[in-house]
Write a protein that binds this DNA or RNA. Structure first.
Lengths: 387, 387
DNA sequence: AAACTTACTTCGGATGACGTATAAAGTAGC
DNA sequence: GCTACTTTATACGTCATCCGAAGTAAGTTT
C-alpha cells in the first residue's frame, strides 16, 4: 500500500500542534506586541486555549513578555511579542566568485557576515568551509537552516544556468550535498523570489497580497505573489520575463538568454551606453538618470523605461497585481523615472497597479529568507529548489 | 475587540470536522472506488479513524458502498465511492439575452436545463423565475447553491462590463439580491475561470497543476491556475489578456476593451474576414481553417495564430504553466492550427509548455461549477464575485 | 474603600485521532 | 472439510485539544 498522502489535511496531533503554534507566531509577527486577549481575536482561539499555547512558546523562547500595555479600564494586559532572537539562519548568496554568508535572526537582522572566494573547481568545499566558520562564530541562537539564494537564469532546455562558479555541479546536488556536509537543512531559492518575499514582509509591498516584483540586474526577472503565495510555475520558472517577446509576431529565441533580457538588463544598457560615447560605466542606469539632459541619453532612457513598463504591463494583464515593485538597478532611475514608468503602466494596463521602487535594498534577501512563506514552501517541495 | 481572524488555522471542532470530511471526499472524488484501507493511505488518517468519518459521510449520502473489490489474499474489501447524486447545484450562464439555467449533480452531469429570455429592464425577475422553475422541477437532491457564470470584461475604470442584459444593475447587487430572492447562496464567477476549473477537473488539464487556459470568444480571456489554485488578482482581473500591449513601445488603450482583444477575438476575426471578401460569417475561425488554401485567408490565419501564440508565450513567461489550453472558438482551428500554435510557443517560451485544445466544450462550465476549488474560493471571498 | 472592568488562568466536559485488540471474511494448504 | 494465514474493518481505552464557565489577579472609578 502506497503511503502517499494526497490532501494535506492536518492528521495527527503533531500536525495540529504545528498549525496552532504557526498561527500564533504568524499573528505575533505581523501585529507587534499584543495582549493574550487580542491574540485570541486575531487567531480565533479562545483565551483559555491560548494560555497553554503561549506558555509552550515562551518555554521555547519564541515568544517573550514585553511589559504591560495600556489599561482600558481594568487590569493592564501583559504584552506578548515574537522574539526574533530565538532562532537564526544562514543566508548564502553569490556575487560572481564571491560567496556571501550572512547569519541573520528571525527578523532578518544581520548578526554576522562572512565572505569567501569560491574555487570553480570545488565550489562545495569553499561553501562548506565558510558556512562552518559562520556556525562556529554564532553558536548562540543555533542556526536552524541554510537558505541559498540562487540567480535563476533559465535556459532553453529547462535547466538552470547557475552562477559560473557553480557550473561544475548539477543543481540537484547543490542542496543535497550541502545539507549533508553542513548538517543543516539547505534550501535553495530563486534570488528574485526571496527579494519579493522580503519586500512583502517589511518593505514596499508590506500591505499587499498580489504583487509583481521586477528585478533588474545582470538579468531581468520577476517574482509573482498571488494571494500572498509565491507562484513557482510548473518547473519553477514563473517570472522568467527575460524571454518576453518584443511584440507581434513573436520571434523564436536563440541561445540561453532572452532577447528582452539581453537588451534591457544592466549589461544591455551598459553596452547601449558605451555604443553612444565609447565609455564603459559601472552603473549605467544611474547614468541614464544623471545625463538625461543629453538628447541621445534621454532617448535611450525613454526606451529603457518603455521596455520595463512593457514588462510590468504584461505582468499586470496576466496576474493583476495590486502593486508592481521595481527592484535592483531599476531603482537608480530616480523619482522622475518612476513617474514615467507609472504613467506608462497606468495608461496601458487594465486595472492599473501602483508602481513603486523597492525599499529594502540588499536587506530584502535576508528578510525574505526568514519569511514564514518560505518555510511552508519548503514543506511541500521536493528537496530541490522551489523556484 | 475586533473579531478579525487573521490566519485561518483550523480552530474548533466544527472546522476540523469540515476539513476531515473534505479531505476524505476529495480523495474519493479523485481516485475512483477505493477500500477503507486504501483511503487511509490516501488521506493519512488511520483506518480506525476512517470508520467514524465514513459512517458519517454514508449517513449524509455523499459516500456509498459499491460492492466488494478484488481480494489480495484475504477478506475482500468493501469499496467506497463518492456519490455525485447526493447533491445538486444550479449553474447559470448568459448567452446574449438568453439565460441558461442548468441543474447538475456533483459530477457535473446535467440533470435538467432551462432557458429564458431576460428583460434588460428587470433582469433579476426573469432570472429568479427560471431558477425557481428549475428548483421546482428538481427538488430531489436539493440544490445547495447557485453558480453564476459571468463574462468578465474588464473596463478601464476597474469595473466589470457585464452582459448587456445585466447592465442595468450594479454588479454587487447581482449576487446579494439573487441570494435573497432564491434562498440559496449565489456565487458569481468568471466564465473563463469556471471553464479552466472544469478542464482541470476532468479534461485537457486533468493531470496538471499549473495551467493557463486561453478562451477565445466574444473577447479573449485567460484563466491562470498556479499550483492547483486559481489566480484571481488584486481586483479579480487576473487573466485579462485582452489588454496585452502589441509590443514595444506599449500604447495606451482607449475605451473599455483592449486592442489585442478587439483584433483577435471572434468579432475581430469576423470583421477582418469580411473586409477580405465582404461576406459575414457565423464561425470565422472555422472558416479560417477551411479556406486556408486561399492566400489571403492563409495570411490572416497565420496572423491570428501568431497573435494567440503571443498571448500564450507571454503567459508562459510570467507564470510558467505546464500546459496552455486553448478553448472556445480557438478549437475550431483544427489540428494543423494547433500544431502551428505549439511550434510558435515552443520556439519562443523559456520552458516550453504543452499546447492543447480544450476537450469538454460547454460541459466545462458545469464541471467547473462543481469543482471543490470553487467552494474553497467562496469560503474566503467576500460575498461577491471572486474573479 | 467598595464596586466595577478588564486580563488571564484553572478546571471539567466534549470531541477527535491514535494504537491495540478483536471480529469478520476471505485464501491457501493438507 | 478443517486448519492456518492474510487482509479488512470495527470497538474501546488513552491522550491531546478546544471550549465554556467559574475563579483569580490587577487595575480604574466613584
Amino acid at each position: 500500500m502506497s503511503e502517499v498522502i494526497e490532501r494535506s489535511a492536518p492528521t495527527g496531533n503533531e500536525a495540529l500542534r504545528r498549525i496552532r503554534t504557526d498561527a500564533v507566531l504568524a499573528a505575533l509577527r505581523e501585529h507587534g506586541p499584543v495582549s493574550r486577549t487580542e491574540l485570541a481575536g486575531l487567531t480565533g482561539y479562545r483565551p483559555s486555549s491560548l494560555t497553554e499555547i503561549v506558555r509552550e512558546l515562551m518555554g521555547s523562547g519564541h515568544v517573550v513578555e514585553v511589559g504591560a500595555g495600556d489599561s482600558s479600564g481594568g487590569r493592564r494586559p501583559r504584552m506578548l511579542a515574537f522574539n526574533p532572537a530565538a532562532e537564526s539562519l544562514i543566508a548564502v548568496s553569490l556575487e560572481g566568485e564571491q560567496a556571501r554568508v550572512s547569519v541573520v535572526d528571525l527578523a532578518g537582522e544581520l548578526l554576522g557576515g562572512y565572505s569567501r572566494v569560491i574555487e570553480p573547481d570545488a565550489p562545495l568545499d569553499g561553501l562548506t568551509d565558510v558556512i562552518q566558520l559562520a556556525l562556529e562564530k554564532h553558536p548562540k541562537p543555533r542556526p536552524g537552516r541554510v537558505v541559498f539564494s540562487l540567480p535563476g537564469v533559465a535556459t532553453a532546455e529547462g535547466a538552470v544556468a547557475l552562477s559560473p562558479v557553480l557550473e561544475s555541479l548539477g543543481e540537484r546536488s547543490l542542496t543535497e550535498e550541502l545539507t549533508e556536509r553542513v548538517g543543516l537543512p539547505v534550501q535553495a531559492s530563486n534570488d528574485v523570489n526571496l527579494i519579493a518575499l522580503g519586500e512583502c514582509e517589511r518593505g514596499a509591498a508590506a500591505d499587499v497580497d498580489d504583487l509583481v516584483l521586477i528585478y533588474v540586474g545582470y538579468g531581468i526577472g520577476a517574482a509573482i505573489l498571488s494571494g500572498g503565495t509565491l507562484c513557482r510555475g510548473a518547473a519553477g520558472f514563473a517570472g522568467e520575463i527575460g524571454f518576453l517577446p518584443a511584440g507581434l509576431p513573436p520571434a523564436p529565441h536563440s541561445g540561453g538568454r532572452g532577447e528582452f533580457e539581453r537588451r534591457w538588463s544592466v549589461p544591455g544598457i551598459r553596452q547601449a551606453l558605451s555604443e553612444l560615447d565609447g565609455r564603459a560605466t559601472a552603473a549605467p542606469v544611474a547614468e541614464l538618470a544623471a545625463r538625461a539632459g543629453e538628447p541621445a541619453v534621454a532617448a535611450l532612457r525613454r526606451q529603457v523605461i518603455e521596455a520595463w513598463a512593457y514588462a510590468a504591463i504584461v505582468c499586470a494583464c496576466v496576474v493583476n497585481p495590486a502593486r508592481v515593485v521595481f527592484a535592483g538597478a531599476a531603482t537608480e532611475l530616480g523619482p522622475d523615472g518612476l513617474a514615467e514608468l507609472a504613467a506608462l503602466v497606468g495608461s496601458a494596463a487594465p486595472s492599473a497597479p501602483e508602481v513603486v521602487f523597492a525599499e529594502l535594498g540588499t536587506r530584502a534577501l535576508h528578510i525574505g529568507a526568514v519569511s514564514p512563506s518560505l518555510i511552508t514552501l519548503a514543506a511541500d517541495a521536493q528537496p530541490t529548489r522551489e523556484g
